[in-house]
């Protein structure tokens, strides 16, 4: 157990978990979105390379 000099607050910990979860989902969507985008980009670029 960590000894803390400040009370992190149960409400704060709960909302932090919810916020981090929400942001995590958005980041994942963003990440996959970027990957999918880059997939299409590569496909588009390929004919030019040849």
């Amino acid at each position: 157990m960590i000894l803390l000099y400040l009370d992190p607050g149960i409400g704060s910990a709960i909302i932090q978990a919810i916020i981090a979860g929400t942001i995590g989902v958005f980041y994942t969507i963003k990440l996959y979105g970027a990957r999918i985008k880059s997939l299409f980009k590569r496909k588009k670029d390929e004919p030019n390379k040849n």
Binding site: I2, L6, P8, G9, S12, A13, Q16, A17
Partner: peptide, 8 residues
Amino acid sequence: QTWAGYKQ
């Protein structure tokens, strides 16, 4: 674990 310093 959550970040104990978040509220602060």
